[in-house]
């Protein structure tokens, strides 16, 4: 028993020694998985010059972040969708709610690179995700059933897609809910029949991005930073920071950094669209 006590005490001393650092203020960022990488990159850069401020980033989904904000568990909720009316009411019960657009994102529709389908109309895309079109040959592709990949219901991207593309109709029952956008990309890279929607920041050569058309007559546009900037790409959305209460002190320092040229350069580097 004594040996163990000794071990525990040693560990305690070591940890206490590690812990003897000056007090730091903590800024908690929680929410959107689409934005978690951006948030982490911004935090990392910010902490290099503000060593006394600790910015903690965690993901889980936009709903997670807003829930945490309402429950008072986070300082900033990152969200890839508008705050819902019910959430707004709850949040405002706790103080003034601030909504800050920190970046824009295009939602790319991606498939396996070997898929012969290169473009879809918005109507076809909706029909596919509602389960009305189930075979690739219905949209000019191979005779193979379509594997639907979606983000989890916790995701702001899920909600945005449901509201904007499906017009609030339900996803087809066969839709696979993936825990993260990266999981969708990984599945797309090895599944020749899958389709998924991913933020611009996640696009890489392992997947092919489809062109989107408003209707049969119009020209197909492929998601890109430029296409979002010049408003030619339809599936674009703002990315938000939500904050309750007065924005001051270290929190304000951080927000100023995020919208500054340096902060927006990081946004751009990660494949998102800067705000100006």
């Amino acid at each position: 028993m004594k040996k163990l006590l000794l071990l525990v005490l040693t560990l305690a001393v070591v940890l206490a020694a590690v812990g003897c650092q000056p007090e730091k203020t903590v800024i908690d960022i929680n929410g959107s998985d689409t934005m978690v990488n951006m948030g982490a990159a911004l935090a990392e850069e910010f902490m290099k010059t503000n060593r006394n401020i600790e910015v903690v980033v965690s993901g889980g989904g936009s709903g997670t972040g807003i829930a945490a904000l309402i429950d008072g568990k986070t300082d900033i909720a990152q969200s890839s969708r508008d705050i819902r009316e019910s959430e707004r009411t709850k949040a405002q019960a706790r103080g003034t709610l601030h909504e800050i657009v920190v970046a824009w994102d295009g939602l790319a529709i991606a498939v396996h690179p070997s898929n012969p389908v290169k473009e879809l109309t918005m109507a076809e895309l909706a029909a596919i995700y509602k389960g009305e079109l189930t075979n690739w040959n219905q949209v000019g592709g191979n005779n193979a059933s379509i594997v639907l990949l979606s983000r989890d219901t916790t995701s702001g991207t899920h909600v945005f897609f449901k509201d904007f593309v499906l017009d609030e109709a339900e996803f087809a029952p066969a839709t696979m809910m993936m825990p993260s956008t990266e999981a969708i990309v990984q599945e797309l890279a090895q599944n020749t029949n899958a389709i998924g929607y991913i933020g611009l920041g996640y696009v890489r050569p392992a997947v092919a991005v489809l062109g989107l058309k408003a209707d049969e007559a119009s020209k197909a546009v492929v998601a890109s930073v430029e296409a979002v900037l010049n408003h030619t790409y339809g599936l674009a959305r703002p990315l938000f920071f939500y904050i309750i209460g007065e924005v001051k002190g270290d929190l304000k320092t951080f927000l100023d950094f995020v919208v500054s040229a340096n902060g927006q350069k990081i946004v751009r580097d990660l494949g998102f669209v800067p705000i100006n």
């Binding site: 807003i66 829930a67 945490a68 309402i70 709850k90 989890d152 219901t153 696979m176 809910m177």
Partner: peptide, 21 residues
């Protein structure tokens, strides 16, 4: 087929739900 057992449902969604929602 793809599926989601009840444990995975809880792990995936619980932190997403605002308390008492």
């Amino acid at each position: 087929e793809p599926m989601r057992p009840i444990t995975a449902l809880i792990a995936a969604e619980v932190t997403n739900a605002a308390r008492h929602s």
